[in-house]
Write a protein that binds this DNA or RNA. Structure first.
Lengths: 126, 126
DNA sequence: AGTGGGTACTTACGAAAGGTTAGCGCTCTC
DNA sequence: GAGAGCGCTAACCTTTCGTAAGTACCCACT
């Protein structure tokens, strides 16, 4: 069999580095941070207000992970009070636009999912 | 302000049900299960072999969640040995194709991410 | 002068999620 | 008749996550 048929990097393999990358992109807060930054750059506290429910700890952790992976740029300005801007890189924008589309799809289809859940639960209780 | 401008269902709101739906779709194993089922229906054990590294417990849990959300159909045939087929619904296919695209994108870009990590780590150590 | 608020984080601890191992009832193969 | 395969389920333990507080600095208000 040809090697070119199967990609050497596959998300299906447990030890493949692509698995970890996908987990960062699809992480609980990673998705929402990326989706928010599609619109425009944000400051730390702005982002915290925009992404409802995220703690400062988890936001900082998520931003560090995504920055390290090359998805976003951190621009810390040496002013008082501190000001740090976060924006997408080219790589980050490619990922962000996909998760943003997924988030929008989810919003549109949430009612259908809720109906499916109600049907599922009723079929079990009766 | 008009209600129609902002969707009543937004992933940005902490208590919105769409948040939960998105978390199911983007969950660690949910992504991989959906991506696998894009190709064709799978049996339980087939899926377990296809999605490398998933435990039986987590696979069963993930499948139940996705079934309840209306993303996939569970077809348990009353034969010995037990045979259970899982396939995508229409709703599930819409979601699955998006996460599949994201998974493929990740595989293609993993090398870039690894390069970014190396650059990030070096900038810190030196 | 002192109090409260805003900035971007970090640290410590309890709670929740996730993972590992084992078992179950049944059948077909060796 | 011993072992493997099937699709789960229950107990247990570890890793992750969220919550609350602390840090250091400055401005506005009282």
């Amino acid at each position: 069999m040809k090697v070119s048929e199967q990609p050497s990097v596959s998300v299906k393999a447990p030890m493949c580095p692509s698995r970890g990358v996908l987990e960062h992109v699809t992480s609980r807060w990673g998705v929402l941070v990326l989706a928010a930054l599609v619109e425009r750059p944000y400051r730390f506290s702005e982002l915290r207000r925009e992404v409802g429910g995220v703690s400062e700890k988890m936001l900082a952790q998520t931003l560090q992970t995504l920055e390290r992976d090359g998805f976003l740029l951190r621009d810390a300005k040496p002013v008082i009070p501190p000001r740090v801007d976060y924006s997408l890189t080219g790589l980050g924008r490619e990922a962000a636009e996909q998760v943003w589309a997924l988030a929008r799809w989810t919003e549109r289809r949430t009612a259908d999912v809720q109906a499916a859940r109600a049907a599922y639960d009723e079929a079990r209780s009766s």
